[in-house]
Amino acid sequence: MQAQAQAPPPQPAKTKPLADAILQKFPGTTVDYVREKRLKVTTTPDKIKEVALFIRDELGFDHISCVSGTDWIAKNEIEVIYFVGSVSKPGQEAIIVALAERSKRDNPSVPTLIEVWPGAEYHERETHEMLGVVFSGHPNLKNLLLPEDWNDIPPLRKDYISPGR
């Protein structure tokens, strides 16, 4: 924050056009940050598949890097983020696009993106068991890392307290 106040940050030459392209195509999305090698856009669960297909096919981000989720308990929301990179489009190897969506904490349900990035299958399964997000259309949402008989709230939710804490 202080560094930004002293001098304006250099304009991210490669990620800014990507952010503009996404915003122009989907005016409803919000751009959370644009850094030199990182870009985060947030959309809604009903739009995410279109945005994901645009990012994959038009912008060339074909390689899933990670899927993460965050429990924003104060806002009563759960955020799911897809981090996608590009391995086949020259000049974009360093860039990671984070595609986020938020849904209500009580009954989080978002569409699966394994038709867009098939590598997301196990990542989504992990997000399902750890945060309780239901990926509609996912072929197999069984517990992956947790025991089959896990009988508690999803452990990465903020209101789950680890034993002994």
Binding site: I64, S68, T70, Y122, E126, L156
Partner: peptide, 26 residues
């Protein structure tokens, strides 16, 4: 890869570890 969220407190708010073995498990 690490997805790290800090809320300004001494501890991370969220820390996601993206490990290569998990990515290659499929």
């Amino acid at each position: 890869s690490y997805h790290l969220i800090s809320d300004g407190t001494p501890r991370p708010y969220r820390m996601k570890i993206g490990v290569p073995s998990f990515k290659n498990m499929i």
